[in-house]
Simulated assay, not measured.
Amino acid sequence: MTTTRMLAMGRAELLLLSRNKMALYVALLLPAFMAWAMRNGISKIDPEDAGMSVNEIALTGAFGYILLFVVYQNLVSSLVARREELVLKRLRTGEASDVEILAGTALPSVAVALAQCVVLLVAGIAWLDLRAVTRPDLLLAGLVLGLAMSIALAAVTTVIAKTVESAQLVTTPLMVVSLMGSGLVVPVEIFPDTVAEVCRLLPLTPVVELMRGGWLGGMDAGEALRSLATALAWTALAVFAVRRWFRWEPRR
Rank of each mutant, 00 (worst) to 15 (best):
residue 220 D to H: 12
residue 1 M to Q: 08
residue 118 V to C: 02
residue 25 Y to A: 15
residue 106 A to E: 05
residue 72 Y to K: 03
residue 169 L to K: 04
residue 117 C to F: 12
residue 163 T to K: 06
residue 183 G to N: 01
residue 186 V to I: 15
residue 208 V to N: 11
residue 243 R to P: 04
residue 222 G to Y: 09
residue 206 P to S: 09
residue 101 I to L: 06
residue 151 I to F: 07
residue 105 T to P: 05
residue 79 L to H: 00
residue 29 L to N: 12
residue 203 P to F: 04
residue 119 V to M: 13
residue 117 C to S: 14
residue 153 L to Q: 04
residue 150 S to R: 00
residue 120 L to G: 05
residue 152 A to R: 02
residue 252 R to N: 09
residue 84 E to L: 09
residue 2 T to G: 14
residue 247 R to I: 11
residue 158 T to G: 08
residue 209 E to V: 12
residue 94 G to I: 09
residue 158 T to L: 07
residue 177 V to T: 13
residue 200 R to L: 09
residue 51 G to Q: 10
residue 237 L to M: 10
residue 223 E to S: 11
residue 65 Y to M: 08
residue 115 A to Q: 05
residue 168 Q to N: 04
residue 102 L to R: 01
residue 205 T to D: 11
residue 46 D to G: 03
residue 41 G to R: 04
residue 243 R to G: 14
residue 229 A to K: 05
residue 45 I to C: 02
residue 210 L to R: 09
residue 68 L to R: 01
residue 159 V to E: 07
residue 23 A to L: 15
residue 63 F to A: 10
residue 243 R to I: 10
residue 124 G to Q: 01
residue 121 L to E: 09
residue 147 L to Y: 03
residue 100 E to D: 11
residue 128 L to M: 13
residue 36 W to F: 14
residue 168 Q to G: 15
residue 117 C to P: 01
residue 35 A to H: 01
residue 171 T to Q: 05
residue 82 R to S: 12
residue 29 L to Y: 14
residue 50 A to Y: 08
residue 70 V to N: 01
residue 169 L to H: 05
residue 82 R to N: 13
residue 139 L to H: 05
residue 121 L to D: 02
residue 191 F to T: 00
residue 118 V to M: 02
residue 211 M to L: 13
residue 61 G to T: 07
residue 5 R to M: 06
residue 30 L to W: 09
residue 107 L to P: 06
residue 155 A to L: 04
residue 22 M to H: 06
residue 236 A to M: 10
residue 126 A to Q: 13
residue 187 P to V: 11
residue 61 G to R: 01
residue 182 S to C: 15
residue 1 M to A: 13
residue 224 A to L: 03
residue 191 F to H: 06
residue 34 M to D: 02
residue 24 L to Y: 03
residue 171 T to V: 15
residue 23 A to S: 15
residue 62 A to K: 07
residue 212 R to P: 03
residue 249 E to N: 06
residue 91 L to G: 05
residue 43 S to H: 06
residue 100 E to T: 08
residue 33 F to I: 15
residue 195 V to C: 00
residue 160 I to R: 12
residue 237 L to A: 15
residue 123 A to W: 10
residue 88 L to C: 11
residue 213 G to M: 07
residue 33 F to E: 10
residue 67 L to C: 04
residue 97 S to L: 03
residue 38 M to Y: 15
residue 245 W to N: 05
residue 132 A to L: 14
residue 64 G to T: 08
residue 47 P to Q: 04
residue 184 L to A: 06
residue 113 A to Y: 08
residue 129 D to A: 14
residue 187 P to Y: 10
residue 166 S to K: 10
residue 185 V to K: 00
residue 186 V to D: 09
residue 112 V to K: 00
residue 98 D to T: 09
residue 75 L to M: 07
residue 252 R to P: 15
residue 144 V to E: 03
residue 90 R to G: 11
residue 119 V to D: 05
residue 91 L to P: 04
residue 159 V to N: 01
residue 202 L to N: 00
residue 184 L to D: 02
residue 29 L to Q: 11
residue 247 R to S: 12
residue 132 A to G: 14
residue 96 A to P: 08
residue 175 M to I: 15
residue 121 L to N: 01
residue 169 L to T: 14
residue 21 K to C: 05
residue 33 F to A: 13
residue 128 L to N: 04
residue 159 V to I: 13
residue 22 M to N: 01
residue 145 L to N: 05
residue 197 E to C: 00
residue 102 L to W: 00
residue 146 G to N: 06
